[in-house]
Design a protein around this nucleic acid. Structure first.
Length: 331
DNA sequence: CCTCTTATCCGCCAGG
DNA sequence: AACCTGGCGGATAAGA
Protein backbone atom coordinates (compact mmCIF):
# COMPACT_ATOMS: atom_id res chain seq x y z
CA UNK A 1 0.00 0.00 0.00
CA UNK A 2 2.83 2.32 0.78
CA UNK A 3 3.86 3.82 -2.51
CA UNK A 4 6.70 6.20 -2.94
CA UNK A 5 7.86 9.01 -5.13
CA UNK A 6 9.38 6.71 -7.67
CA UNK A 7 6.05 5.09 -8.45
CA UNK A 8 4.86 6.11 -11.87
CA UNK A 9 1.12 5.76 -11.74
CA UNK A 10 -0.85 7.66 -9.15
CA UNK A 11 -2.78 5.90 -6.46
CA UNK A 12 -6.30 5.36 -7.77
CA UNK A 13 -9.15 6.45 -5.52
CA UNK A 14 -12.76 5.51 -6.19
CA UNK A 15 -15.42 7.51 -4.41
CA UNK A 16 -18.52 5.35 -4.15
CA UNK A 17 -21.53 7.65 -3.89
CA UNK A 18 -24.69 6.02 -2.60
CA UNK A 19 -28.17 7.46 -2.86
CA UNK A 20 -28.80 10.31 -0.37
CA UNK A 21 -25.11 11.13 -0.27
CA UNK A 22 -23.78 13.96 1.85
CA UNK A 23 -22.51 16.57 -0.59
CA UNK A 24 -19.53 17.78 1.36
CA UNK A 25 -18.26 14.23 1.84
CA UNK A 26 -18.53 13.59 -1.86
CA UNK A 27 -16.11 16.39 -2.59
CA UNK A 28 -13.68 15.85 0.26
CA UNK A 29 -11.50 13.16 -1.34
CA UNK A 30 -11.08 15.16 -4.52
CA UNK A 31 -10.30 18.32 -2.64
CA UNK A 32 -7.80 16.80 -0.23
CA UNK A 33 -6.31 13.69 -1.83
CA UNK A 34 -6.81 15.10 -5.31
CA UNK A 35 -4.54 18.06 -4.72
CA UNK A 36 -1.74 16.26 -2.88
CA UNK A 37 1.56 16.50 -4.70
CA UNK A 38 5.04 15.35 -3.95
CA UNK A 39 8.16 17.50 -3.94
CA UNK A 40 8.33 17.30 -7.73
CA UNK A 41 4.76 18.62 -7.98
CA UNK A 42 3.44 15.31 -9.25
CA UNK A 43 -0.12 14.53 -8.29
CA UNK A 44 -0.22 11.50 -6.06
CA UNK A 45 -3.85 10.48 -6.15
CA UNK A 46 -6.28 10.17 -9.00
CA UNK A 47 -9.79 10.56 -7.69
CA UNK A 48 -12.85 9.31 -9.59
CA UNK A 49 -16.45 8.95 -8.55
CA UNK A 50 -18.95 6.19 -9.17
CA UNK A 51 -22.43 5.14 -8.12
CA UNK A 52 -23.77 1.60 -7.85
CA UNK A 53 -25.35 1.61 -11.32
CA UNK A 54 -23.59 4.57 -12.88
CA UNK A 55 -26.78 6.60 -12.72
CA UNK A 56 -27.42 9.72 -10.71
CA UNK A 57 -27.84 9.66 -6.94
CA UNK A 58 -29.68 12.17 -4.80
CA UNK A 59 -27.65 14.51 -2.66
CA UNK A 60 -28.95 16.27 0.42
CA UNK A 61 -29.71 19.82 -0.53
CA UNK A 62 -31.88 19.08 -3.51
CA UNK A 63 -29.62 18.06 -6.36
CA UNK A 64 -28.26 14.97 -8.04
CA UNK A 65 -24.82 13.81 -8.95
CA UNK A 66 -24.14 12.05 -12.23
CA UNK A 67 -20.85 10.16 -12.02
CA UNK A 68 -18.57 9.02 -14.80
CA UNK A 69 -18.50 5.41 -13.62
CA UNK A 70 -20.49 2.60 -12.09
CA UNK A 71 -19.46 0.34 -9.24
CA UNK A 72 -17.05 -1.59 -11.46
CA UNK A 73 -14.68 1.31 -10.88
CA UNK A 74 -13.95 -0.20 -7.47
CA UNK A 75 -12.45 -3.27 -9.15
CA UNK A 76 -9.38 -1.31 -10.19
CA UNK A 77 -9.12 1.16 -7.31
CA UNK A 78 -6.34 1.18 -4.75
CA UNK A 79 -8.61 2.93 -2.29
CA UNK A 80 -12.41 3.03 -2.12
CA UNK A 81 -14.06 5.84 -0.18
CA UNK A 82 -17.67 5.73 0.98
CA UNK A 83 -19.01 9.22 1.75
CA UNK A 84 -21.72 9.81 4.33
CA UNK A 85 -25.37 9.27 3.61
CA UNK A 86 -28.36 11.01 5.13
CA UNK A 87 -30.91 8.29 4.39
CA UNK A 88 -31.25 4.89 2.79
CA UNK A 89 -31.36 1.23 3.79
CA UNK A 90 -27.85 1.16 5.19
CA UNK A 91 -28.82 3.81 7.69
CA UNK A 92 -32.27 2.49 8.54
CA UNK A 93 -31.81 -1.28 8.39
CA UNK A 94 -28.08 -1.83 8.10
CA UNK A 95 -28.41 -3.25 4.61
CA UNK A 96 -26.87 -2.38 1.26
CA UNK A 97 -27.60 -3.81 -2.11
CA UNK A 98 -25.81 -7.12 -2.76
CA UNK A 99 -23.95 -5.90 -5.83
CA UNK A 100 -22.35 -3.09 -3.80
CA UNK A 101 -21.51 -5.38 -0.89
CA UNK A 102 -19.96 -7.82 -3.31
CA UNK A 103 -17.86 -5.13 -4.97
CA UNK A 104 -16.59 -3.86 -1.64
CA UNK A 105 -15.84 -7.36 -0.44
CA UNK A 106 -13.92 -8.11 -3.62
CA UNK A 107 -11.96 -4.87 -3.36
CA UNK A 108 -10.97 -5.67 0.20
CA UNK A 109 -10.04 -9.24 -0.64
CA UNK A 110 -7.88 -7.92 -3.45
CA UNK A 111 -5.93 -5.81 -0.97
CA UNK A 112 -7.52 -2.44 -1.61
CA UNK A 113 -8.00 0.06 1.16
CA UNK A 114 -11.56 0.98 2.07
CA UNK A 115 -12.50 4.04 4.06
CA UNK A 116 -15.72 5.72 5.10
CA UNK A 117 -16.64 9.24 6.02
CA UNK A 118 -19.29 10.06 8.58
CA UNK A 119 -22.33 7.80 8.15
CA UNK A 120 -20.66 6.03 5.24
CA UNK A 121 -19.54 3.69 8.02
CA UNK A 122 -23.06 2.24 7.99
CA UNK A 123 -22.64 1.08 4.42
CA UNK A 124 -19.18 -0.27 5.14
CA UNK A 125 -20.38 -2.07 8.26
CA UNK A 126 -23.26 -3.55 6.28
CA UNK A 127 -20.73 -5.56 4.28
CA UNK A 128 -19.56 -7.30 7.45
CA UNK A 129 -15.97 -6.25 6.81
CA UNK A 130 -15.87 -4.26 10.04
CA UNK A 131 -17.01 -7.12 12.26
CA UNK A 132 -14.66 -7.51 15.19
CA UNK A 133 -12.78 -4.36 14.26
CA UNK A 134 -12.68 -0.87 15.67
CA UNK A 135 -14.56 1.83 13.79
CA UNK A 136 -16.14 5.22 14.27
CA UNK A 137 -18.96 7.26 12.80
CA UNK A 138 -20.80 10.49 13.45
CA UNK A 139 -21.40 10.69 17.20
CA UNK A 140 -25.12 11.43 16.81
CA UNK A 141 -25.52 8.05 15.09
CA UNK A 142 -23.51 6.04 17.60
CA UNK A 143 -26.47 4.44 19.35
CA UNK A 144 -28.08 3.42 16.10
CA UNK A 145 -24.81 2.06 14.79
CA UNK A 146 -24.34 -0.12 17.86
CA UNK A 147 -27.85 -1.45 17.54
CA UNK A 148 -27.46 -2.32 13.86
CA UNK A 149 -23.88 -3.60 14.03
CA UNK A 150 -23.21 -5.07 17.47
CA UNK A 151 -20.18 -6.98 16.16
CA UNK A 152 -18.29 -3.78 15.35
CA UNK A 153 -16.29 -2.21 18.14
CA UNK A 154 -17.50 1.37 17.82
CA UNK A 155 -15.44 4.18 19.28
CA UNK A 156 -17.53 7.34 18.91
CA UNK A 157 -15.00 9.56 20.67
CA UNK A 158 -12.32 9.83 18.00
CA UNK A 159 -12.03 11.68 14.71
CA UNK A 160 -11.05 8.59 12.80
CA UNK A 161 -9.99 4.99 13.25
CA UNK A 162 -7.20 3.37 11.25
CA UNK A 163 -7.46 -0.39 11.14
CA UNK A 164 -4.90 -0.77 8.39
CA UNK A 165 -6.90 -1.29 5.23
CA UNK A 166 -10.22 -0.32 6.79
CA UNK A 167 -10.54 3.26 7.94
CA UNK A 168 -13.56 5.09 9.27
CA UNK A 169 -14.05 8.71 10.22
CA UNK A 170 -16.49 10.78 12.20
CA UNK A 171 -18.73 13.64 11.05
CA UNK A 172 -18.17 15.44 7.77
CA UNK A 173 -15.12 17.52 8.61
CA UNK A 174 -13.35 14.51 10.07
CA UNK A 175 -13.27 13.15 6.53
CA UNK A 176 -10.69 15.82 5.84
CA UNK A 177 -8.66 14.69 8.82
CA UNK A 178 -8.84 11.11 7.60
CA UNK A 179 -7.70 12.03 4.09
CA UNK A 180 -4.77 13.96 5.52
CA UNK A 181 -3.94 11.00 7.72
CA UNK A 182 -3.86 8.75 4.69
CA UNK A 183 -1.58 11.14 2.82
CA UNK A 184 0.67 11.23 5.85
CA UNK A 185 0.75 7.45 5.98
CA UNK A 186 1.42 7.06 2.27
CA UNK A 187 3.80 9.95 1.66
CA UNK A 188 4.87 11.41 4.99
CA UNK A 189 4.09 14.46 7.03
CA UNK A 190 5.66 16.91 4.61
CA UNK A 191 3.33 16.12 1.73
CA UNK A 192 0.35 16.00 4.08
CA UNK A 193 1.22 19.36 5.57
CA UNK A 194 1.45 20.96 2.13
CA UNK A 195 -1.91 19.50 1.16
CA UNK A 196 -3.41 20.76 4.39
CA UNK A 197 -2.01 24.21 3.82
CA UNK A 198 -3.51 24.25 0.36
CA UNK A 199 -6.87 23.33 1.86
CA UNK A 200 -6.38 25.89 4.62
CA UNK A 201 -7.05 23.37 7.34
CA UNK A 202 -4.90 22.32 10.27
CA UNK A 203 -2.63 19.44 9.29
CA UNK A 204 -3.32 17.62 12.47
CA UNK A 205 -6.25 17.89 14.80
CA UNK A 206 -5.70 15.86 17.89
CA UNK A 207 -8.37 14.84 20.29
CA UNK A 208 -11.67 13.30 19.60
CA UNK A 209 -15.23 14.15 18.98
CA UNK A 210 -15.44 14.92 22.67
CA UNK A 211 -14.78 18.52 21.80
CA UNK A 212 -17.89 18.60 19.63
CA UNK A 213 -20.23 16.61 21.76
CA UNK A 214 -22.57 18.48 24.06
CA UNK A 215 -20.42 21.56 24.04
CA UNK A 216 -22.58 24.30 22.58
CA UNK A 217 -20.32 27.06 23.91
CA UNK A 218 -16.61 26.46 23.73
CA UNK A 219 -15.06 28.06 26.78
CA UNK A 220 -12.86 30.35 24.78
CA UNK A 221 -11.65 33.46 26.50
CA UNK A 222 -11.74 31.76 29.87
CA UNK A 223 -8.91 30.02 31.59
CA UNK A 224 -8.92 26.90 29.50
CA UNK A 225 -5.97 24.68 28.76
CA UNK A 226 -5.32 26.01 25.25
CA UNK A 227 -2.65 28.47 26.38
CA UNK A 228 -0.93 25.71 28.28
CA UNK A 229 -0.94 23.46 25.24
CA UNK A 230 0.75 26.18 23.27
CA UNK A 231 3.23 26.69 26.07
CA UNK A 232 3.92 22.97 26.30
CA UNK A 233 4.26 22.50 22.54
CA UNK A 234 7.08 25.03 22.56
CA UNK A 235 8.92 23.10 25.28
CA UNK A 236 8.81 19.58 23.94
CA UNK A 237 12.54 19.18 24.46
CA UNK A 238 12.10 19.60 28.20
CA UNK A 239 10.84 16.83 30.45
CA UNK A 240 7.37 18.19 31.11
CA UNK A 241 5.45 16.64 33.93
CA UNK A 242 1.74 16.77 34.46
CA UNK A 243 2.39 18.92 37.51
CA UNK A 244 4.28 21.43 35.36
CA UNK A 245 1.41 21.75 32.93
CA UNK A 246 -1.19 22.06 35.67
CA UNK A 247 1.01 24.63 37.35
CA UNK A 248 1.24 26.70 34.20
CA UNK A 249 -2.53 26.59 33.86
CA UNK A 250 -2.88 27.54 37.54
CA UNK A 251 -5.07 24.60 38.31
CA UNK A 252 -4.80 21.59 40.52
CA UNK A 253 -3.61 18.47 38.77
CA UNK A 254 -7.03 16.93 39.10
CA UNK A 255 -8.90 19.87 37.58
CA UNK A 256 -6.33 20.26 34.85
CA UNK A 257 -6.56 16.67 33.70
CA UNK A 258 -10.33 16.84 33.80
CA UNK A 259 -10.59 20.07 31.81
CA UNK A 260 -7.88 18.97 29.40
CA UNK A 261 -9.75 15.79 28.61
CA UNK A 262 -13.03 17.66 28.19
CA UNK A 263 -11.48 20.15 25.80
CA UNK A 264 -9.25 17.93 23.70
CA UNK A 265 -10.66 14.45 24.14
CA UNK A 266 -7.33 12.99 25.21
CA UNK A 267 -5.40 12.95 28.46
CA UNK A 268 -2.55 15.44 28.91
CA UNK A 269 0.17 12.86 28.66
CA UNK A 270 -1.27 11.25 25.57
CA UNK A 271 -1.45 14.64 23.94
CA UNK A 272 2.13 15.36 24.93
CA UNK A 273 3.26 12.04 23.51
CA UNK A 274 1.48 12.78 20.24
CA UNK A 275 3.24 16.14 20.02
CA UNK A 276 6.60 14.54 20.66
CA UNK A 277 6.05 11.87 18.04
CA UNK A 278 4.94 14.47 15.51
CA UNK A 279 8.01 16.55 16.18
CA UNK A 280 10.25 13.53 15.82
CA UNK A 281 8.49 12.77 12.57
CA UNK A 282 9.30 16.18 11.17
CA UNK A 283 12.92 15.94 12.30
CA UNK A 284 13.30 12.53 10.69
CA UNK A 285 11.95 13.86 7.43
CA UNK A 286 13.75 17.14 7.26
CA UNK A 287 17.08 16.60 9.02
CA UNK A 288 19.92 14.10 9.16
CA UNK A 289 20.11 14.11 12.92
CA UNK A 290 20.70 10.78 14.60
CA UNK A 291 17.93 9.06 16.43
CA UNK A 292 19.37 9.95 19.82
CA UNK A 293 19.68 13.60 18.82
CA UNK A 294 16.09 13.57 17.72
CA UNK A 295 15.08 11.82 20.91
CA UNK A 296 16.61 14.68 22.86
CA UNK A 297 15.04 17.41 20.81
CA UNK A 298 11.60 15.90 20.85
CA UNK A 299 11.63 15.23 24.55
CA UNK A 300 12.15 11.49 24.68
CA UNK A 301 14.61 10.68 27.39
CA UNK A 302 16.37 7.99 25.41
CA UNK A 303 16.56 6.76 21.85
CA UNK A 304 15.00 3.52 23.02
CA UNK A 305 11.98 5.37 24.33
CA UNK A 306 11.66 7.22 21.04
CA UNK A 307 11.86 4.03 19.04
CA UNK A 308 9.23 2.30 21.13
CA UNK A 309 6.74 5.17 21.20
CA UNK A 310 7.33 6.10 17.58
CA UNK A 311 6.80 2.58 16.38
CA UNK A 312 3.64 2.25 18.38
CA UNK A 313 2.18 5.57 17.20
CA UNK A 314 3.26 5.55 13.57
CA UNK A 315 3.41 1.87 12.83
CA UNK A 316 6.98 1.72 11.59
CA UNK A 317 10.33 2.24 13.33
CA UNK A 318 12.02 5.66 12.99
CA UNK A 319 14.73 4.39 10.66
CA UNK A 320 12.22 2.87 8.27
CA UNK A 321 10.16 6.01 8.41
CA UNK A 322 13.13 8.13 7.47
CA UNK A 323 14.13 5.84 4.64
CA UNK A 324 10.63 6.07 3.25
CA UNK A 325 9.98 9.75 3.64
CA UNK A 326 13.25 11.61 3.90
CA UNK A 327 12.86 14.36 1.32
CA UNK A 328 15.91 15.22 -0.75
CA UNK A 329 17.39 18.52 0.37
CA UNK A 330 15.50 20.76 -2.01
CA UNK A 331 12.45 23.00 -2.27
C1' DC B 1 12.70 -10.95 30.64
C1' DC B 2 11.58 -9.91 35.25
C1' DT B 3 10.99 -6.85 39.35
C1' DC B 4 10.76 -2.43 41.62
C1' DT B 5 9.53 2.40 41.42
C1' DT B 6 7.34 6.25 39.90
C1' DA B 7 3.90 8.86 37.06
C1' DT B 8 -0.49 9.15 35.10
C1' DC B 9 -5.46 8.67 34.64
C1' DC B 10 -9.93 8.74 36.31
C1' DG B 11 -13.99 7.28 39.37
C1' DC B 12 -15.49 8.65 43.66
C1' DC B 13 -16.71 11.97 47.01
C1' DA B 14 -16.61 15.68 50.20
C1' DG B 15 -16.64 20.58 50.29
C1' DG B 16 -17.56 25.32 48.37
C1' DA C 1 -30.54 21.96 43.94
C1' DA C 2 -27.00 22.36 40.25
C1' DC C 3 -22.49 23.08 39.39
C1' DC C 4 -17.30 23.12 39.86
C1' DT C 5 -13.15 22.01 42.49
C1' DG C 6 -9.47 19.24 44.17
C1' DG C 7 -7.78 15.39 47.28
C1' DC C 8 -7.62 10.22 47.61
C1' DG C 9 -6.71 5.79 46.02
C1' DG C 10 -6.57 1.96 42.87
C1' DA C 11 -5.54 0.44 38.23
C1' DT C 12 -2.38 0.83 34.67
C1' DA C 13 1.65 2.01 32.20
C1' DA C 14 6.40 3.80 31.68
C1' DG C 15 11.09 3.83 33.14
C1' DA C 16 15.19 1.89 35.82
Amino acid sequence: MRNNRAMSRPHRVAVLALDHAVGLDLGTPGQVLGIARDAADTFLYEVSTCTPDGGPVRVRGGFRVLPDHDVSLTATADTVIIPGISDGPALTDGRIEPAVAEALGAAHARGARIMSICTGAFALAATGLLDGRRATTHWAYAARFRRLFPAVRLDPDVLFVDEGRLLTSAGVAAGIDLCLHVIRRDHGAGVATRAARRCVVPAWRDGGQAQYVERPMPDDAGWGTAATREWGAARLHEPLTLRDLAGHARMSVRTFTRRFRAETGVSPNRWLLQQRVDHARVLLETTDLGVDQIAGRSGFGTAAALRQQFHRAVGVPPATYRRTFRAPAAT
